[in-house]
Design a protein around this nucleic acid. Structure first.
Lengths: 200, 200
DNA sequence: ACCCAGACGCAACTACTTCGCGTTAAGCTG
DNA sequence: CAGCTTAACGCGAAGTAGTTGCGTCTGGGT
């Protein structure tokens, strides 16, 4: 499992983690991500390199943890009064943030650093939570709401695929089209409803 | 750009590349991927480590190149007589191969190694080529064929997203459903038809 | 046949990574 | 609140990987 879960939540361990994470963010801004090394980060954080290696294993896992933090949405999705507009706005913002150079780097770091892909799942959960919140609000208004898994397949997956694999122009016209497709089968019985059981 | 494009196609350079790639494949099978190091690979390939560093930059880029090679489809998509069955078979095979531990590792390696994501684009192109071939064949039979970009959004993207971010059971029922969705809007004017221009 | 340039080998150097051991401090128990 | 247990950290040494300059070789062009 990722080193994120501190076995001793309070006290020194927590301080070290915070200090190291902050050092990564600071140095990333100062010297650039490619110049980051474990000894450099450790020195800035006021710890010895061996501490970082013991807790995170290597630089990639550390960067992965920090990247996931930065990918965590800081605010609940905005309420524009209707499911369609909420989804359109969310998708546009998602595409915008994730397709930036910084966003792509964070995604790649989060994906790559963690062998058990726990951090990748966290990223996906962030999106799912936001979509869920939008859905719950819409349901409260009496609107028909697509399944979250469907939204992941129809809206999030194409965006992420193009960001990672295929340089594309993720314009509002495109993201709106994805949302329209999702709403086109709002509560259709043919919705994919993908299973969620781990495969082995 | 990736080191894949040898500036001098013939002669020693080509031999070195082949030898190094082969060494990676051999050692990957013998000692496991995580134990791979540049010095180890160089020794097996009969070259000095500096040669590898000069040509590939670092281990990740080398692994990325090798991974892309392994992800390249070795055969054209099978012909089952109809667009739907061809797509279903292709999607099932794609899901099967890519969701295996080895497949996921290759995808991750391909994604990570290359800053300009040239290798990621290559992966996507492989899928696009296969889908294109299936489509051309179906068009020859007079069938209505969805746009390749649509197929990427509706079939490939969800599979890849779940493989990378979300442990899911990619059963035939699920992949068939994705294909059905794609065929449901065969030549619909509402097909996403995503632009392909780089974003900046 | 000669020349030019890219690619490689060699070797020394720097930096990163790992490991054992002693110490510290967080959390638990009485 | 005092004492105990143990995970986590600091330190330093040893090993390994990554980097660089320079000379040599090979392939392609003239």
């Amino acid at each position: 499992m990722s080193a994120r879960a501190t076995t001793r939540p309070g006290g020194r361990s927590a301080r070290v983690q915070q200090s190291v994470h902050q050092a990564v963010r600071d140095l990333e801004a100062e010297v650039g991500r490619d110049a980051l090394t474990v000894p450099l980060i450790a020195a800035r954080a006021g710890v010895t390199p061996s501490t970082v290696y013991r807790r995170w294993g290597d630089l990639r896992e550390l960067l992965s943890d920090v990247a996931v933090e930065r990918l965590r949405p800081d605010t609940p999705p905005a309420d524009h009064g209707s499911l369609r507009v909420d989804l359109e706005a969310w998708a546009a913002q998602f595409a915008d943030e994730m397709s930036s150079t910084a966003g792509r780097t964070y995604i790649r770091d989060a994906l790559l650093g963690d062998p058990e892909q726990g951090n990748a799942v966290r990223c996906s959960d962030y999106a799912a939570e936001q979509l869920k919140a939008i859905g719950v609000r819409a349901a409260g208004r009496g609107e028909a709401v697509p399944d979250v898994e469907t939204l992941l397949d129809v809206v999030v997956a194409p965006l992420m695929y193009r960001i990672l694999f295929r340089p594309s122009d993720l314009s509002a016209a495109y993201t709106d089209r994805l949302v329209a497709t999702a709403l086109g089968r709002s509560s259709a019985p043919s919705a994919p409803s993908a299973p969620s059981a781990p495969k082995s």
